[in-house]
Design a protein around this nucleic acid. Structure first.
Lengths: 256, 256
DNA sequence: CCCAATTTGTTCGTATGTATC
DNA sequence: AGATACATACGAACAAATTGG
């Protein structure tokens, strides 16, 4: 006969249970980032477990970006605000397996970036507008045709990242920046870059310039329209590139 | 003069370095989910470190959802595909600190859900359409006014989650489901539910019914329009609710 | 500059739990 | 049921980092 005593879900490992208990504890008490958790010794006593077990629990929280440890006097384990970089990296692990296509990414960009542009129109400070101008200027090549498309693409993504950072909406900010990073990784990984087409470069810069102008004058609908057009052309371009790469792969396989 | 010997970034803890090394190793070798990593003993030998250190490294990977451990013969540490639930939970940690508003969430929903609806038009199987009908039927109350708005809202979110699950686009799928969960958590946490308004319930069901009809006939633009209208009304509703709650908070503070 | 105190970081040996054969 | 192979957990000791005297 099975014991009537408390079983209490012993299927989860002790470090996992301790980590969840600590997380719940921190949330219940409403501890802010920077607050110190009890020392390892105190946690050992509190949970009645060995040092190794407690340390594994802390690693589980550390990997999530929720705590950070420091050695020495005044050291310890501290509540930590999850950074955007950490969150993006963790989410990237998921899409490493889900492999979205370039087109998948552009579906979301095409829907979100115009919304972002519209929401920023007339709301940016002079300093922020100047910053955008500076990013555009950076991406303009000193000598025509001197840089390759990888650089151009990276510069474009930097512009979009800067723009997203100016949004008050943390969700919009995160998703747009994440999509840009993902796009960058995938294009690099698949070698989707080709030698610079100066004409293309010029039109890209023209889009950005017109966008900043609309943002400056506060014309939300113009900003939305410019960004939507920009996304449409970029999407078309990348679609044809992806098709070309697929064809190349196929012919390689046919040969090999 | 600084030593010319290898420093090799000893600022990161050993478990962290081991975890990154293993991650890189797995990616380089292209190991698929289900593949077994070397045993703890082998990893100890390979990295020249003690058991505790190796175990902490494995916990770091486990928290990211990248590996799972099993005891016993044939057991060990296995590469694991990060689940959508795990990814959503990890990302949720980030927004626990970034606190987006309800309106922030709806900005993204309003941009993405119509896109999702349009992309699914004419592409769903009879079984999938039947499933959507079933979810709608579930949310229809046996007796009018018998259930509260929390239930109604949850049912609506379930409908949207089912819809998102039918997309081929993993990004769209993930973001929409994540937004729905986030919205659910926030409304529950802030007590933004009010007694059921039967009229509202009816209009919500009408939207869903019209949407499924457009999906069945394959009218992408109709599907997009229905969803856009639905989002607009829902957004308006939640905005007024949030304003009401804010007023209540303010007057409470004014009194206290 | 060194020394002492504090706290996390790491090692080793041993024992226990769990699943497979 | 027993042997085997693996992760899981414990406890004691020592190492390294940081702060303050």
């Amino acid at each position: 006969m099975p014991p009537a005593t408390t079983r209490s879900e012993t299927r989860l490992s002790r470090p996992t249970r301790v980590a969840e208990a600590i997380k719940q504890w921190v949330m219940d008490e409403g501890w802010a980032p920077g607050q110190r958790l009890p020392s390892e010794a105190e946690l050992m006593a509190r949970f009645g477990m060995a040092k190794g077990t407690i340390r594994e629990a802390i690693r589980l929280l550390e990997a999530q970006g929720l705590v950070k440890s420091r050695t020495g006097p005044g050291g310890g384990v501290f509540v930590h605000q999850v950074s955007e970089e950490r969150a993006a990296a963790l989410l990237g692990n998921y899409f490493f397996f889900a492999h979205p296509t370039i087109d998948d990414i552009y579906r979301l960009r095409a829907a979100l970036e115009p919304e972002l542009a519209a929401s920023l129109a007339g709301r940016l400070s002079a300093a922020q507008l100047a910053r955008l101008d500076a990013v555009i200027a950076e991406s303009a090549p000193p000598a025509p045709g001197a840089e390759d498309e990888a650089t151009r693409h990276a510069a474009s993504l930097r512009f979009h990242a800067e723009l997203a950072a100016m949004s008050e909406n943390p969700l919009l900010r995160f998703v747009i920046r994440f999509l840009a990073e993902l796009l960058s990784e995938i294009t690099v990984a698949r070698g989707l870059h080709s030698p610079t087409d100066p004409e293309l470069w010029a039109t890209g810069l023209a889009y950005q310039t017109r966008l900043v102008e609309a943002l400056r004058t506060g014309d939300a609908e113009a900003a939305r329209a410019v960004m939507a057009a920009h996304m449409a052309t970029a999407q078309r371009l990348m679609r044809s590139r992806e098709a070309a790469v697929t064809r190349r792969f196929l012919s390689d396989r046919a040969r090999g």
